[in-house]
């Protein structure tokens, strides 16, 4: 039974990781942009959720669609105004976009500090568990995991089985080829960025139910998301989901038997091991 509970805890933790990482993965997969403002979007959405529920008494899950849509619109706008102009610089565009999103992350963190203050906050919702026999399923993590699973499945299905999704993948694999086929690559990139930011904002709503969030949490979230997509394969949606769940299970077992420090450093140790053993994974999968 202990093994099963560790497995459940690990899978639920992995679900949270999928939630945090998949939107970063989408943006990287399609555009080759490591969105360093990713964690700031999650933190900002989480803090907005706290503020909104504190003032209205509403269920935080009601904020999910608001944050998702608002995030997508702002993401699309931000991409068109800030990121797209640097995408026309050929080989330099990846570095330039990295710098742009780095700057954007500082602006968003400062905005969050000004709007919501520097305190860690969380909301006291979904704190208990569902019991199945003697197995406990933390409600907040289950909701986050189910949301991540549904979003990942929809994303996967859309990218692989719809014309618009295939268009997006085509633009990712060969922008020049896509342009020659009449695809508006700039529009595709704006769409992908918008969806990615929208998903990150939705993730923020769920993250603040699970753990305390402050503006300064942003960099930790970005780092964690990057480690997960690096482990799963940059731009590989299924690979990232599998890596996130495996990482969650491994951390769950390590945390139980070896303590907190071992659990904390495990993702970074694994990243180093994979970098040394499989350097080929650190290419964008096109």
């Amino acid at each position: 039974m202990l093994a099963l509970q560790l497995l459940v805890n690990g899978i639920l933790l992995g679900g949270l990781y999928v939630l945090v990482a998949q939107s970063l993965n989408l943006i990287f997969g399609v555009m080759g942009v490591v969105n360093l403002a990713h964690g700031a979007v999650i933190a900002l959405a989480g803090l907005f959720t706290y503020w909104f529920t504190a003032h209205t008494g509403a269920n935080p899950l009601l904020v999910l669609p608001i944050a998702g849509v608002a995030g997508a619109l702002m993401g699309a706008l931000g991409q068109r105004l800030l990121v797209e102009p640097v995408m026309r610089h050929g080989a330099r565009s990846e570095l330039l976009s990295l710098l742009v999103t780095f700057g954007l992350s500082y602006i968003l963190i400062e905005l969050a500090l000004q709007l919501f203050g520097a305190d860690f906050v969380s909301v006291p919702d979904l704190q208990s568990s569902w019991q199945l026999g003697s197995l406990a399923f933390g409600k907040a993590l289950v909701v986050a995991g189910v949301f991540a699973l549904v979003m990942s499945a929809l994303l996967y299905a859309w990218l692989n089985h719809s014309m618009s999704g295939k268009t997006l993948l085509a633009a990712a694999q060969s922008p020049t080829g896509a342009i020659s086929c009449g695809i508006d690559v700039a529009l595709v990139r704006m769409t992908a960025f918008g969806i990615g930011v929208g998903l990150a904002a939705a993730a923020g709503v769920l993250v603040i139910i699970i753990q305390p969030v402050a503006p300064q949490t942003a960099s930790d979230l970005t780092l964690l998301a990057f480690v997960i997509i690096a482990l799963g394969g940059l731009g590989d949606y299924l690979g990232v989901a599998i890596a996130a769940v495996l990482l969650g299970i491994t951390q769950s077992v390590a945390g139980y038997y070896l303590g907190g420090n071992a659990e904390y450093i495990l993702p970074y140790v694994l990243l180093l091991v994979v970098m040394v053993a499989r350097p080929g994974r650190f290419r964008r999968i096109r």
Partner: peptide, 19 residues
């Protein structure tokens, strides 16, 4: 007994405490 870093997941530690 354990020491830990500024982590966010305490599910394993909590399970160990429970047991």
């Amino acid at each position: 007994q354990t020491t830990y870093t500024l982590q966010t997941d305490f599910s394993s530690i909590a399970l160990a405490i429970k047991n």
